[in-house]
Design a protein around this nucleic acid. Structure first.
Lengths: 363, 363
DNA sequence: ATTCTCTGTTTAGTGGTTTCATAAAAGTAA
DNA sequence: TTACTTTTATGAAACCACTAAACAGAGAAT
């Protein structure tokens, strides 16, 4: 493979006996250049196989046309969907996205923000790590004039736009649904971490119980990391109670899945003996048996809206310092794991019977 | 938010009464600068809140320390895992990754390569789109001296390093396992597309049958897009046959899942009546009932190896033009959907009984 | 006295973009 | 037609922030 020599606008200029500035203007379709010259430049550019150098332009313009995304990990369904949504919007207006993973590690997150500032990204879109309690690194970005937008895992400690879903409402809807299905002893799996999403889901759970006059029982709220194993452990703990729950609302789908496994291993019927609901609408939830009722987080939508808000903000100078909080309404996806009563024949009910996933093809 | 003024190495230089080059060297820990000067520079840099400008350095050095990744879509489990693996390695050596989606669209893929060349990425890692049959855009990148490495969806038409899994072997293993479980009429779901992975899986299926003396039956090989719905349709088609199959090996997990749904709706027992195996080890496969036997594609490993090969290649001049093809051995994940005979008590068997997913936490 | 070594400076890029200047062409008013 | 203004099309040079090759001066070693 012979590497072809690099060609710059100066090479084009030389060929045409004009200056580099003329070539630059011609390539940028500047109205002050005659059509004839533009055509000639374009022709030679093609002929010489000219490749623009964005880096040089970025240095001069102070804009890289690149934005940084920070997520805890790139391969979790929710985050990869958001990333997909962001890239989709960014791509349309010729922006590129750098993706960085914080692994929920505070130091890594700090370093990442710094690395993105070094790279001179035009802005940062982030979902804050689970262990982050100090936000100086994000403040630093803002002080440097780098716009910041947060999604899902956000904080009110920063004056920035945030896009979140209403975790409280999602949880409330789920628990309300369980109550309407006749459940009266509803357990809840939550996290001990100080992450707002879990606190909100707990609040939704508590309020729904209280609104429907169902007494709160301390032993029914179990804290864990909400992974599959934790869900199993939590369910086993519940099975040791004198009075068994007749429903479990887990703040995560994985937790609910662990509970489902243990229930089935112990020959409980779902939902007749114990109804089960999760949170996130992870792709796997539609494939369990029974399919798992869960709360959809509108991940792709969240990515697109996040990107739209972001670009709106960086495009107009006035909006640069405006911060807005967008709260998406999550959707309760009712599936068989909670259907103790026959559903009325609504579109939603039919949908619940026959679930399919979009946009998933084999590799 | 008041935006602080930008500070450059010149500002630091001025403060210390040295030149910018001295500052530059000091910051890069160049041995020609005395420790005293280095310390002084570092101190002032910190004091002035200096932020290095990678773009200027990139322009000067001709290296951006950014690599581009092109995948069909970023939110498919397999690809997001690979991306995760690549980012992980890249991050360790201070490289950033730009992620781009081709949506399996040829024109988009061509544009994307061009955009990455404009961005002056130090290399490109790509998985080729399903509809791409001309590779000139990749050749162009190589001609410009931008290293290219392909993974999973690759082509032999380019002289580049490729990292793939042995689809043939994976399929062979799956079918062999079905045969060993006593299945003799094994159907196969495949794709009509000219993508090598599916052709290889088909070849593995055929060879396993032939090696074990099982006759090939044309009506048992069904072509489709391999999505969930396609799997359902294909299974329904199979159920209309006079002689039903006693196993289905689908070239995709979604296809297998569709089949599982239809079989359960028709009260067939899995695996006793029909055994089921998929391909990809998508996260959902461990949560179906019964859990689905499938072929693991080692996605994170593939990402890491791809990144390692890539960086090895760009770091040493001699290796730049060396292309190697790495074929990973896929692993057959045996789960209940194919276990018609009791398993011997091996570690693998115990693992199949009790599956858990790593690194999956709630959002 | 000569040659190194150490530490820094000078200078010249890197590839575009943009401000300011300018020559030629075109338009306008007397 | 002449004199003056305006417009059009382009050039020259500065600039963005950093880096590296070539060069230089002081003190140490030979």
């Amino acid at each position: 493979m012979t590497i072809k020599p690099k060609v710059t606008i100066h090479d084009i200029a030389e060929k045409l006996n004009v200056t580099a500035s003329t070539v630059s203007r011609a390539l940028n379709d500047n109205p002050r250049i005659s059509d004839a010259t533009k055509k000639a430049v374009l022709k030679i550019a093609k002929q010489l196989n000219y490749q623009p150098n964005n880096i040089a332009a970025a240095l001069r313009n102070g804009k890289s046309h690149i934005i940084g995304i920070i997520v805890p990990t790139a391969d979790r369904a929710f985050f990869s969907s958001v990333v997909r949504g962001i890239e989709e919007i960014a791509n349309k207006i010729n922006y590129k996205v750098i993706i960085c993973q914080s692994y929920d590690n505070y130091e890594k997150e700090v370093q990442t923000v710094d690395a993105l500032l070094n790279a001179r990204v035009d802005g940062i879109i982030a979902s804050i790590g689970k262990n982050t309690e100090n936000f100086d690194h994000f403040k630093k970005a803002m002080e440097k004039g780098v716009p910041l937008v947060l999604f899902d895992r956000t904080t009110d400690a920063l004056e920035v736009s945030q896009i979140v879903i209403d975790d409280y409402l999602g949880a409330y809807k789920a628990v309300e649904h369980l109550i309407q299905q006749g459940c009266t002893r509803i357990a809840h799996f939550t996290s001990p971490k100080k992450v707002s999403v879990f606190k909100e889901r707990l609040r939704g759970y508590l309020d729904a119980l209280s609104d429907y006059g169902i007494p709160y029982a301390d032993e029914l709220v179990i804290k864990s990391n909400l992974q599959l194993e934790d869900g199993r452990d939590s369910m086993e703990q519940l099975l040791k109670l004198d009075k068994l729950p007749d429903a479990v609302f887990s703040a995560s789908d994985y937790g609910a899945m662990g509970a489902m496994q243990v229930l089935k291993e112990n020959n409980f019927r779902i939902p007749q003996d114990v109804a089960l609901a999760g949170f996130s609408n992870d792709p796997f939830t539609s494939f369990t048996d029974p399919p798992l009722t869960t709360v959809d987080q509108l991940s792709i939508t969240m990515g697109k809206i996040t990107a739209e808000i972001f670009f709106e903000q960086i495009s107009t100078q006035e909006k640069r310092n405006m911060s807005q909080k967008i709260i998406l309404k999550p959707e309760l996806i009712i599936r068989k794991s909670t259907m103790r009563k026959p559903m009325p024949d609504t579109p939603a009910a039919r949908q619940a019977e026959h679930v399919k996933l979009a946009n998933q093809e084999p590799a």
